[in-house]
Computed example of a mutant assay.
Amino acid sequence: MLTSLSSMQLDYIRLWFLVQHSLTSFYKISQHYTHLAEATQPDQSETWQKLGIHKNHIQRLQDFHLTESQLKFQHCVDLIQKQSDFVLLQNDAHYPQQLLPYADKPPILFGQGDAQALLQPQIAIVGSRKPSHHGRQVAYDFAYYLSEKGFYINSGLAQGIDEAAHRGALQHNRTIAVMGTGLDQTYPSQNQHLRQQILAHHGTIITEFLPGTPPLQQHFPRRNRVVSALSLGVIVAEAALKSGSLITAKWAAEQGKLIFAIPGHIYSEHHQGCHQLIREGAILVDHPDQVIEDLALPTQWHAQQHNQQANKINCLDTQPELPAHLNILYNQLDWVGQHIDEIMLRQKLDVATLTSQLMELELLGLCMQQAGLYLRCRPGK
């Protein structure tokens, strides 16, 4: 539960409320105004019109001063404070860095549980809502194995494969659920207990949707883009040809992510979607180690497997304390790698200061260089 929201958070929430989760409208408006608070003033409807904002959003702005609208907004804010453990804006240091390259990233995330988990290396496992017993077991096993190796497993809290993946990763306290509703709801409702278990085991629940947002069909492709964007790669454990998980795979392909598909029986309709993905170029995997190898991550297990830098990289067993002055820089680093020019642009630091801080992180075992890029080097607790 949040005791208060900052003025910047309220500005974001107010605009998000007025444009009803429209990414196009939000970014058009926010990029036009120097101060977001100005955007929602009553006299701005003409500017919104010039920006090409939808007439329904303009009408909501014009009606926003009315008592009924103010009461609805205040109720929304009250629910956010009551139900959220954290609210992340896209310019926050703890906002997941892996989302930043995408134009359709959520401008705001509402969450419960451990916000730090979002910064850890993640692999998505998705698939059918009505899987076979075999598919459910495979999803559980892959999630169990990969989470034991230090990865967080994220999925969509749906029935079937999502549920099995969350349960497998729960065994090592490393799972993240992305919802297609507001935090005040659980969909499907039978996963309410699973949701509680995720939070009880140091997991994380996030959504871009405001409280009161129902499980509408169009919300789930939006949820899927976040699932894939957060992840280093996406595993499709089992899927029919018309499975919604193929939408997640499509998002992953557009985002440049690696897509892994687990094959099955050639006569089984449960696996036809996975076989189609393999024909289209997805990587066939039948063991989770193959996922780790293809991702080629600079993590301890990868280094040990190849007998390289075994004494230098000790990312799983040691947890060095992070000095306060390095916190923002460390949070910006990701598991894919960034060029020093890119880091310098975001950090607004001179080269000497930045290289000094990067060297400190390297000496602490929290950062490493690979092919000229700087990467994180700690898969989490």
Rank of each mutant, 00 (worst) to 15 (best):
C274N: 09
L277C: 12
A252M: 04
A324E: 13
G244F: 05
L326R: 04
A261E: 08
L277G: 08
L322V: 13
D286E: 15
L358H: 02
V336D: 02
S268Q: 11
H302I: 06
S356Q: 07
T318E: 11
C274Y: 05
L345R: 03
H265W: 11
E321P: 03
P323W: 08
Q300Y: 06
K257G: 09
A249D: 05
D334F: 02
N331I: 00
M344K: 07
L345T: 04
I343W: 03
I328V: 12
D334P: 08
S356F: 05
D317G: 10
L295Q: 08
I278R: 02
P288A: 03
V351K: 12
S268C: 13
N307I: 00
L329N: 04
D294K: 14
L329F: 05
E269C: 04
L258P: 00
D286P: 03
Q255G: 12
T355E: 14
D341E: 11
W301K: 08
G256A: 15
S268E: 14
Q255T: 10
G281N: 06
L246M: 11
G281Q: 07
P320R: 03
Y267I: 09
P288R: 01
L322C: 09
D341W: 00
I259V: 15
R346G: 03
L322E: 07
D294I: 10
Y267V: 11
N311R: 01
A261Y: 05
H275T: 07
W335N: 02
